[in-house]
Amino acid sequence: MRLPCPLCGSRDHREFTYQGAAVMLDRPAPDAGAEAWDSYVHLRDNPAGATRELWYHGAGCGAWLVVARDTVTHAVFGAELARQVRR
């Protein structure tokens, strides 16, 4: 599998570390309550198909990416810098 880093170009996925579903960007407010925090930390849509994930380009530029990908076919649709997704 190869991921299109917006800064470095197409790179083998061994350069990156998977960091979970991109819902991790949507951190609840500290007082949002147990349900919201349980949902944020533990529960996952876990789709069989298109998904959005965080990947860390540790062996490259060090950027955090939001990668759009298909979990069944492993097709990669694109990647953006996480800092631009979440301002």
Partner: peptide, 8 residues
Amino acid sequence: TGAHDDGT
């Protein structure tokens, strides 16, 4: 020996 994702 193997075909892997994205032309690898």
